[in-house]
Design a protein around this nucleic acid. Structure first.
Lengths: 189, 189
DNA sequence: TGTACATCAGTGAACGCGCGTTCACTGATGTAC
DNA sequence: TGTACATCAGTGAACGCGCGTTCACTGATGTAC
């Protein structure tokens, strides 16, 4: 079978399976079957399972960071920046929940092995907080702690959605979540 | 070797290893070696690796929920309850960070297989929010969403500590985190 | 245009390692008489 | 108290399955002449 887009089918299958069962819970046979190719064919595109997982993770992680950084660059003011970032997180989740879940689940094992070029998502949030503190927009707070609070509000909501506790898309919830994140940071100081 | 407390040594070794490498990243040989017994001896106490992981998870999860429920029962008023719960989460983390991390990491694969008798941690938080809404203490908010925000503030902070981004014990940070959680819920409405 | 050849994404069988599990056996402890 | 026996937490070697990886081979496509 000389199908077009084999690589993209492998990536989609791998992301969906990794998101559902974790990297260790998925075999090469699973991915190959789901993508409709033989196991051997997979090795024409990747050195092995590890490289496949690492490349998928690193690429998505880099892209998330880049999109967040771009959005922060377009906004000025703490509230606007947090609002835009929260909205973007929600949009990323709605766009591809499996990818989002894969990043959340796999970060424990894959993040240490990822070259963190550019700005990872957490660094973008930290920078927005640091700017706001520097400009006197918000009280002096521990930047790392504030970033944790902002990320927590968004990511835990996404996890609740993954577990089926929250229905519907996340984007409509973004304004409320942004208000919550901003209020939480303000209350930290 | 007829050592005393073999079971508790196995549990400690398993929790530490599971927390560090994930359940799938740890072999029976690893656990046995770390506990100072042979692989075969492990099967005198557990039917197998799955049961070991499931029992450790279920017991810790149940205990976390029970301790949180007890604490909520001692407090009245939304702010006091959230404050006590956040402090308890921090204390649980400081008491045994590996156990806390194990619960966070493994919930994706072990929570679905856990009989949720009594009240799991998230249900305790939800009930505190629901009570506050019913009593008119806070605005009417989506209870699930509010619970996600509270849990997110605490758990993401704990994760940042796991990743080495935050130093020191969490208990001293509990008051600030509680204020953040309460403000976040208030801003949701 | 036809022929010979190189390239390369595919196949599927085979391999070998790691890991969970089993099992015959050991030796200490408790108990019946 | 001494003897025979049951019990049971241990040991460590062996087993077998699953999975990642390899490899000889296939057939389609592109290219040189």
């Amino acid at each position: 079978m000389r199908a077009t887009g084999v690589k993209s089918r492998v990536e989609r299958a791998a992301i969906d399976l990794f998101a559902a069962h974790g990297v260790d819970g998925v075999s090469i046979a699973d991915i190959a079957a789901s993508a409709g190719i033989s196991q051997g064919a997979l090795y024409r595109h990747y050195r092995g399972k590890d490289e496949l997982a690492r490349r998928l993770f690193a690429e998505a992680y880099r892209q998330y960071g880049a999109e967040l950084a771009a959005i922060v660059g377009r906004e000025s003011g703490f509230a606007a920046r947090i609002g835009a970032m929260v909205a973007q997180f929600c949009a990323l989740y709605d766009r591809d929940a499996a990818l989002f879940r894969f990043l959340l689940l796999a970060q424990h094992e894959l993040l240490p092995a990822t070259r963190q070029e550019d700005a990872p998502p957490v660094a973008v949030v930290e920078r927005a907080v640091a700017d706001a503190v520097r400009d006197g927009e918000i009280a002096v707070v521990d930047v790392v702690c504030a970033a944790a609070v902002v990320m927590g509000v968004v990511l835990q909501t996404a996890l609740f959605h993954v577990y089926g506790r929250l229905p519907g898309p996340l984007v409509p919830r973004a304004p409320a979540l942004a208000r919550a994140a901003i209020a939480a940071v303000a209350a930290l100081g």
